[in-house]
Every structure is written in structure tokens, then in C-alpha cells.
């Protein structure tokens, strides 16, 4: 038996919104420690990795590990039927899970709706992501990162990210001209959500597709801060941390011959 009850149902809506543009079908892997998902987009340029800890649910019950193969568009349609303040419970029979039951309860518990989502067999390869000591780790306000991606898309489909000790610089070059945004580290003790920090092993300069980065910023409502981790000749890691877990996006760089 699998059961996971989330008091903040809106969080599940936001999570789904941050994944569904990148991936259409995905396995939710359920175990006694929590729920996780790993999937690449069709072109294998980006990978999304989601992890939700069992402690974030109340209650959480999973007797044995199993996978829920879900069409995210279908799940999204059903999730639209949940109110933003609803408590959401996911239930499935772990021995023969051919459907996922979703229960939406409003705060006063007067209205309860129940939906069944048909599950599918998804044959997805699972990649092992190596532990990486990144050359540069940058924390910044997630809304700022979203704005930079949106702004620079006006100029080009690619962005070069340069990180030094003193600044992170985003540069775009296109047919109409060029644009760049530079951010310096700031520490605002009373407003930590607005601070920018740079941890640097060595300077790094990498080019990425703005279309994908912009897609990743759908995670913005999940966290005030976003973490960017860069290393030469490695995929960029973009992480949004939540109380209950995290969503990580990996983006393969644009590289020269």
C-alpha cells in the first residue's frame, strides 16, 4: 500500500508545473524514504531530478519500492481540479498499480473529491549523476535569474555564463546586437532571500541554451533562491530547494569541437 498526504497541495501543482514542459511521461519512484523522479527531455539535452522526502508528508506510507508511470499532461489536467488550499492525498496499490488515486480535501473538510489516473509502463533509463566538486557555486534570487533568462532571450538563443570571484556575468550575442547582465555578490543579513553569493574554486565560462534555462525557471515559485553550479565541460546544475526536498535541472553545455 502506498499513501502520501500533502497538506500544502499547491506545492504539488507548482512541482508539476516545473516539470511538465520538459518531460511528458515519467516514473515517480516511491520508496520508504520518499518520492523521486528522474527524466530527460526528448532531445537528451536536459535532465530533471526531483526528490521529495517522506517526512514532508503526513502521513507517508510505502511498504515496498515501486514506480508510478505517469503521463504528466493527464496528471496536470486532474491536478487543475484541486483547489490551491486543498490537502492532496496520493494512493496506490503497490503490488498491481495500474492507477493512481488522488484525493482533494478542502480546508474545512466539507468537500472531498476523488480522481483515478490511469498509469502506464514507462521504460526509462536511469542515469547515475556523479558527485561533482563544482568550480563555481552561485546562489541568487530565483526571480532575478528568471528575469535575466527572459531578458537575454530578446538578444539570442544562447547565453554565456562567466563566473569569477567578484561577479557572475550573463552574456548574449545575436543578430540584433548584444546584451549582458553582471551581478556582484551581496549579503543582506535581514533579507537572506535577496542575497547573492559566489563560491569559487576556479573561474568558469560556459555557454548554454536559453530556451532550456528559461524552461527551468518554471521552478521559480518553489524557492526564493536558486543555486547554479558550474564546472568546465560539465552540465550546469540549477537547483531549487524546498522544505520537503528539491528539484534539480541539469543542462548539457554548448561546446566547441
Amino acid at each position: 500500500m502506498f499513501e502520501a498526504r500533502l497538506t500544502q497541495g499547491a506545492l504539488l501543482k507548482r512541482l508539476l508545473d516545473s516539470v511538465k514542459e520538459l518531460v511528458t511521461d515519467a516514473n515517480f519512484d516511491c520508496s520508504e524514504t520518499g518520492i523521486s523522479l528522474q527524466a530527460m527531455d526528448n532531445s537528451h539535452v536536459a535532465l530533471v531530478s526531483l526528490s521529495l522526502r517522506a517526512e514532508g508528508f503526513n502521513p507517508y506510507r510505502c511498504d515496498r519500492g515501486f514506480s508510478l508511470g505517469v503521463n504528466l499532461n493527464s496528471l496536470n489536467k486532474i491536478m487543475k481540479c484541486a483547489g490551491n488550499e486543498d490537502v492532496i492525498t496520493l494512493k496506490a496499490d503497490d503490488s498491481s498499480a495500474d492507477s493512481l488515486c488522488l484525493l482533494f480535501e478542502n480546508s474545512s473538510n466539507e468537500r472531498v473529491s476523488e480522481y483515478e489516473l490511469k498509469l502506464m509502463d514507462i521504460d526509462q533509463e536511469h542515469l547515475s549523476i556523479p558527485e561533482t566538486d563544482y568550480d563555481a557555486t552561485v546562489m541568487m534570487p530565483s526571480a532575478e535569474f528568471q528575469r535575466i533568462c527572459r531578458d537575454l532571450m530578446v538578444v539570442s538563443e544562447s547565453v554565456t555564463i562567466d563566473v569569477s570571484k567578484d561577479e557572475i556575468k550573463f552574456t548574449a550575442e545575436g543578430e540584433l546586437g548584444t546584451g549582458n547582465v553582471k551581478l556582484k555578490p551581496t549579503s543582506t543579513i535581514d533579507k537572506p532571500e535577496e542575497s547573492i553569493t559566489i563560491e569559487l574554486g576556479q573561474t568558469v565560462s560556459l555557454q548554454f541554451s536559453l530556451k532550456y534555462l528559461s524552461n527551468f525557471t518554471r521552478g521559480t515559485p518553489l524557492s526564493d533562491q536558486v543555486m547554479l553550479c558550474l564546472s568546465d565541460n560539465m552540465p550546469l546544475l540549477v537547483e531549487y530547494k524546498m522544505d520537503i526536498g528539491y528539484i534539480r535541472y541539469y543542462l548539457a553545455p554548448k561546446v566547441g569541437d
Partner: peptide, 14 residues
């Protein structure tokens, strides 16, 4: 812009 690489070039299958 430079050619796009893929995730498979960096992360291996389990």
C-alpha cells in the same frame, strides 16, 4: 553559437 552537447555524454546509464 556553439554545438549543443547531450546529457548522455556526461552521465552514464545505471
Amino acid at each position: 553559437s556553439l554545438p549543443q552537447s547531450t546529457i548522455d555524454e556526461f552521465f552514464s546509464t545505471n
